[in-house]
Design a protein around this nucleic acid. Sequence first.
DNA 1: GTGATAATGATAATGATTATCATTCTGACT
DNA 2: AGTCAGAATGATAATCATTATCATTATCAC
Lengths: 128, 128
Amino acid sequence: MQKLTAQRQAILDVINRSDKHWDADEVAYALKENDTPIGIATVYRGLAALAEQGLIESIQLADKKRYERADKKHHDHLICTDCGDIEEFCKPEIEKLQDLVASEHDFTIQGHQLLLFGICIRCKGKGI
Amino acid sequence: MQKLTAQRQAILDVINRSDKHWDADEVAYALKENDTPIGIATVYRGLAALAEQGLIESIQLADKKRYERADKKHHDHLICTDCGDIEEFCKPEIEKLQDLVASEHDFTIQGHQLLLFGICIRCKGKGI
DNA sequence: GTGATAATGATAATGATTATCATTCTGACT
DNA sequence: AGTCAGAATGATAATCATTATCATTATCAC
Ligand SMILES: [Mn+2]
Ligand SMILES: [Mn+2]
Ligand SMILES: [Zn+2]
Ligand SMILES: [Zn+2]
């Protein structure tokens, strides 16, 4: 990314103004609401470029990529298989053990993805 | 899955006779080599059905699902971003901490996926 | 054997993402 | 100010894994 163009700045603003985990369509829709509509291909390219620069974070779910603000400390995710809600958690002991695993395998770790799937507290009380 | 049909048994056999992590196309190709060709839709359905019954395991990578034998103890994966190789590891302390995280969030855990991305030992010595 | 149910397989459809390509923008340099 | 090159944009086509459709076939209970 050479330039933080107006379009990419607009994408970044959308993502930075909430704690959501956005997919490309949601970003495009928010931009349209915003009266700054941007072509969907440009949204995809912008998201990829911003993530590459570390200006936003990405998580890869089964079906699609989602993006979030980069200005929080590193965390991983709990995903409700019922409502799709995404919660966050931070557990440095796990990260340490991951590094240990990598070194045990002579593996130079570049990143990781830990997803916990299950039922969130809200969905637990649904069928009553 | 009502029946373990001949086709599904053939899929299961292919997967059980190696330690690979198979995608649907690879399974279909192996079956053709085997002189037991099976329609690709049937392969997809068979893999899903076998995984649902716990007869095989699945992992969801960024682009596609892969399947492996279910007769090993639970493990997670190291994925080389250079050659695509998949190694396995087992770290019960991590699993315990995952359960702790879930309980801290009143989250009923159903499953998890931990992927460590990086460079495997073989690829590390490449550019010399 | 007959009928209900499930599975198969060829093919079409879906959905997220990427590629193409003509057009527009930007910034550096006259 | 004008020119030029490299980037970015956006409409659209293409890709690729997976799922849906649907007519046909297999299987099981009676
Ligand atoms: Mn997050
Ligand atoms: Mn494995
Ligand atoms: Zn939920
Ligand atoms: Zn490698």
